[in-house]
């Protein structure tokens, strides 16, 4: 690849990062509105996410707790943006390569480590508890999620997310993974894992505002909290896109041409919105688990269901 091609590609990736953040901030506001409607309230306007970030970034004083505290946030946000660049969005591939399913899994662990660094630097005991809980949560939901991922890889015989998306879109909607019986089970498992990734109730144990005063974020204020909100916004998009890419064909319904691209993009948007809304509805219906309950839930019930799906898929392939 020559220099100009690389330049163009990086420009496209940056543009995508902006689009992802924009959609994420939109989702933050719309999500609060949905939760409010479930509570029979009016709720904030749908653009509340943008207002909040603008306010936080325009704060006049910002307390820092040393350079690790400053850099940890950049660490988190760049990790999640890189993960976004590796995911096919509406069938458009940016940096997709072979084996990127594993890579994305590793990249998704970076933000949690960034969190841990920042919270550790702030020295607040609540933050320490929060980080410990976040790492335990990560350990719990990744096991069932990885098992479902392996099932997908065995079925489609590839480790590239882009290839999985491609194979799911050969016959339009009817070839989406979610319409294949074992993957219905796997999708249900992965959706609960997604609930943990998004830190929605019943799995909002790491942030738990009433117990440990929002956990890792306890010392973040002003611009730092604003950056954290940007991270939260983009992580919603990344995690729902991961689910859509794996089970809903990445939203690809047409092939070839600019019209198909736009249509795919819109379908992708609608699908991630549906996945996000589903997780919000679960969020409003349940109280919070304790950490050991969440751990048991994922490693016992979820892992068993995921293994059943894996064996089923293996049997089908053979």
């Amino acid at each position: 690849m020559d220099v100009s091609a690389i330049m163009i590609k990086s420009a496209v990736v940056i543009a995508y990062a902006f689009i992802g953040t924009f959609i994420g901030l939109l989702f933050l506001g719309v999500g609060r509105k949905i939760v409010a409607r479930v509570h029979n309230r009016v709720g904030p306007p749908f653009y509340q996410g943008f207002i909040d970030v603008a306010k936080l970034l325009s704060k006049k004083t910002n307390i820092s707790h040393g350079w690790i505290f400053d850099l940890a946030l950049l660490f988190s946000i760049s990790g999640i943006l890189l993960a976004f660049a590796f995911l096919p969005v509406g069938g458009i591939k940016l940096l997709s390569t072979d084996g990127d399913a594993f890579l994305v899994l590793y990249l998704l662990a970076i933000p949690a480590l960034g969190f841990a660094l920042g919270a550790g630097a702030s020295g607040n005991p609540n933050a320490g508890i929060g980080v410990m809980r976040a790492l335990v949560m990560m350990l719990s939901y990744e096991l069932p999620f990885v098992i479902t991922m392996i099932a997908l890889m065995i079925y489609y015989d590839t480790t590239s997310i882009a290839r999985i998306v491609e194979l799911q879109s050969v016959n339009g909607i009817s070839s989406w993974a979610i319409f294949i019986p074992p993957f219905m089970l796997a999708a249900a498992v992965a959706d609960m894992a997604l609930q943990g990734m998004l830190m929605e109730q019943p799995f909002d144990i790491p942030v738990a505002p009433h117990e440990i005063a929002s956990g890792p974020m306890v010392e973040f204020g002003g611009k730092y909290l604003g950056t954290l909100m940007l991270y939260k916004a983009i992580s919603i998009v990344v995690e729902t896109t991961l689910f859509v890419d794996f089970f809903l064909g990445g939203g690809v319904i047409m092939h070839g041409g600019i019209v198909a691209n736009i249509a795919n993009f819109i379908v992708w948007f609608v699908l991630i919105f549906i996945v996000f809304t589903l997780s919000l509805l679960i969020n409003t219906a349940f109280p919070r688990f304790r950490i050991e309950q969440a751990f048991t839930f994922y490693w016992k019930y979820e892992a068993i269901l995921a293994t059943v799906a894996l064996i089923w898929v293996y049997w089908m392939v053979i």
């Binding site: 409010a36 309230r41 009016v42 709720g43 904030p44 207002i51 505002p209 929002s214 010392e219």
Partner: peptide, 17 residues
């Protein structure tokens, strides 16, 4: 419902206005 004006309650003073 004060959230319709964007007012939310926060857990720590660092985050609050």
């Amino acid at each position: 419902d004060m959230e319709r004006f964007g007012i939310a309650s926060m857990a720590t003073p660092r985050q609050a206005d």
